[in-house]
Nucleic acid binder design. Structure first.
Lengths: 199, 199, 199, 199
DNA sequence: GCTTAAACGAGACGGTACGTCACGTCTTCTA
DNA sequence: TAGAAGACGTGACGTACCGTCTCGTTTAAGC
C-alpha cells in the first residue's frame, strides 16, 4: 500500500512468522463457524492455532479486525464474467453477495462484525475497503458503462443501489430461517432492481 | 408472554413497582444513546434508574430484551395515512423506517441487537413481532390491496419487499457517515422500488 | 477494631461466606509452603480453595496482604510464661521468634513479604501491628518491668532490642542452610543479648 | 566464574563492548533507586542504557544478578582503619553496614534481592561472597585477633555476631520510617554488642 | 585482504500471571 | 413476594514482563 514497502521491506528485528498469521486466520474461521462470533475468544483461537494471545494482539488490534480478515479473505476472485446485459450483471451480483454472506463463517460472523463496525471507525473503513476492492467495485463499473449506453435511467445512484443489494441480502439472511438464499430469491430480487433502474 | 397477564394478574406477595419499569426503560434508552450498545451494562442501567440488577432481571431475561423494548417502544403510532397511491405509501414507509432506525437510541442499539438476535431465537421472534405489529403490518396490507387493484405486477413478494426496504435503510445507515437519511434518499429509494414493482 | 462493628455488624446485602475466608487462608498457607512465595499465584489459591479470583480480590487487596494473614494468623498464643528472670524471658523470646520464622510457611513467605512490605506502606503497618499485638508486645512489657527492678542498664532501647532479636533471627535463617535454628543458637544468642543489656 | 578470564580471555568473534557493561550497571542503579526493585524491568534498563535485552542477558543470567552487582559494586573500600580497640572496630563495622544498606539504591534493592536469594542458590552464594570479600572479612579477622588477646569471652561465634550486626541493621531499616540510621543508633548498638561479647 | 565468529540493534516468540470487568444468580435483611 | 444491597461462580479481557529466538548488520582477530 505504501511505496516504501517494496525494496527494503525488511524491517529491523526478528520478522513475524507468517505461519502464525495463516494458522490464526484459519483457526478463527473454523471457530467462528462452529461457535458463533459472540462465543469466540482470542484465547481459544490462539490455542487452536498453536500460538498465544500476545502473538495475536501483535497482529490485530481486536477480535473484529481479525475475524473480518479471516472471514472475507482479500484474495477472493473479483472479476465479473462479461455478460453484456445489465440484468445479468445484477443477477450475478446478487448471487455473489448472497453466496459471500451465506458462507458459514460469514453468516456466523456478520452480525457481530456489523455491531462492532458501527462503534469503531477503523473497522468501518477496513471492511468497506475490503468490499469496494472486491465484487462491488466491478458492479459499479458495469453500472457506469450501462448508464453511458443509456440502459439506466438518469437519477440512479450506484452507491445507493449497492447498499440496497447488500442490505436486502443481509436482511433476508437475518430474518429468514433458511441457511442460504436460493435461486428464486436471486431471480426475484434481480427482477425488482432491474425494473427499478431501467429507463 | 402476555397470556399470564390476564384477569387475575395479581400474584401473591408484594406487587412490582411500575415506576421501576419506567425508570429502567428510560435509563436504558439514555445510556445506550450515550455510550452505545456494547458499553452498556445492566449495573449502570440499574444505578441510573435508582434500582438494582435483580429488579431488572426479574423483568427482562437479558440485556437485549430490555434494550429492544427501551429502543422500540410498543406504543408507537402505526397507522399509515390514507394516500390511495402506492408510490406515496412506499415513500411514507421508507420515511418511517428511516426515522425509526435513525432515532439516536435505535441507531446506537440496532447493530448490537441484530448481533444478539442472530444468536437467540426468542429475541428474534420478539423483535420481528414488534415490527410486524407496527409499521410493517400496515404496508403489507396496502400492498395486498394495491395488488388486488392491479397496480402491482404479479410475482412481487410483499415480504421480500419489506426486507429490501428495511435492509436498504439499515445498510445506508451502517455505511454512510451521516446521522440521518434525508428526503432525497427517501425519494430516490421510493422511485427505485415503485418502478420495480409496478406492472 | 471499630466500635460500630459490634451491635449492627450486619451490613446490607449478602454477607461474605466465612468458609471462603478460611479455605483461602488454608490454601494460601499450603501452597506457599509447597511452592514458595514467588511461584504462588492467586489463581492457584482460588482453585485450591474451591473459589475464584474475584472472591479473593474482594477480601485482600494483594497477594502480600493475603499471605501475611495466612502465614501469621492473628489468634496465636501470645502470653509469655512467668519466669521472673530477664535472661529466661530473652531466651523464650528468641525461641518463639525462631519458631515463628522457621515454621515452613513463614520461612517460605518471609523474604517475599519483606520485599513487598518495603514498597507498600499499608502492608508495612499491617505486618508490624500483627507482631506488636503478638509476642513482641509481651517482651516489651517484661523489659520495662525488668528496667524498673534495675536489672537493665539505662540506655537500652526496647524497640532496638526487639529489632536486633528479629533481625538476627531473620538473617540467620536467610544465610544459613539449615531449616531451623537449634537450641544452641538460641542459647548463644540469649547469652549475647543478656550480657549486652545487664548493668 | 572468573576462571575463564585468564590469559587468553579473548574468544573468537567480536569482543563485548565494555561501555555497555558500564551503562547497564549505571542504568540499573538509577532505575532501582527511582522505581524500586519490583517495578524494575530489564527492558527499561536496556532502554535507559541505550542497548537491548539480549545484550544484558549475554552478561547477567537474571535481573537479580545484575542488580546485586549494580547495587554493591565489588571495588568498594574494604580496609578497616587500625583502631586497636574492639569496641571501635564494632562501631566502625556497624557504621559501614548501616551506610552500605542505607545507600538509596541498596535500600531500594535489598528486600527484593533477599527474596530472590532465598529461592536461588547461585545468587545466595554470589551475594554472600561479595560481602565476605568486603567489610565482613575484615571484622572477622579483628574478632579472631581480639579473641587471641583475650578481649572476647569464649563461646562467641564470629559468624553469629556478623549475622546479628547485619540482621539488626536490616531490620532497623525495614521497620523504621527513617531514611538512614543515625550515630545514636550506631552508638547504642555498638554498646549492646560490645558488652555482649566482652568477658 | 578475507574469513570467521561473536556481539550488536531490533523486535517477535511462547509462556504465564496479572488485576479487572460484566454476566446472570443467590442470599441476606427489610418493607 | 418485592426490593436494596452486595457477594457469588464463571469466564474473558487486554497488558505486562519474562527469558529466548531469529533476523540482518557491525566489528575485531587470525589466517
Amino acid at each position: 500500500m505504501e511505496a516504501d514497502e517494496n525494496a527494503s521491506d525488511q524491517r529491523a528485528g526478528r520478522p513475524r512468522d507468517p505461519r502464525i498469521d495463516r494458522a490464526v486466520l484459519r483457526a478463527a474461521n473454523d471457530l467462528v463457524r462452529q461457535h458463533g462470533y459472540a462465543d469466540l475468544t482470542i484465547a481459544a483461537i490462539a490455542e487452536a492455532a498453536g500460538t498465544t494471545k500476545p502473538a495475536i494482539y501483535r497482529r490485530w488490534p481486536s477480535k473484529a479486525h481479525l475475524v473480518h480478515e479471516a472471514v472475507f479473505p482479500s484474495g477472493e476472485n473479483t472479476s465479473l464474467p462479461q455478460t453484456g446485459s445489465l440484468s445479468d450483471d445484477l443477477r450475478e451480483m446478487l448471487r455473489r453477495t448472497a453466496a459471500a454472506f451465506s458462507e458459514p463463517a460469514a453468516r456466523a460472523a456478520l452480525p457481530g462484525l456489523l455491531a462492532e463496525i458501527s462503534a469503531d471507525r477503523s473497522l468501518h473503513t477496513a471492511l468497506l475497503e475490503r468490499f469496494q476492492d472486491g465484487v462491488w467495485g466491478a458492479l459499479r463499473q458495469r453500472l457506469v458503462e450501462a448508464a453511458e449506453r443509456g440502459e439506466v435511467r438518469s437519477g440512479v445512484d450506484p452507491a445507493a443501489l449497492l447498499e440496497t443489494i447488500a442490505g436486502a441480502t443481509l436482511m433476508a439472511l437475518l430474518i429468514r430461517d433458511t441457511d442460504h438464499l436460493d435461486d428464486a430469491w436471486v431471480e426475484h430480487s434481480a427482477e425488482l432492481l432491474t425494473k427499478g433502474i431501467t429507463p
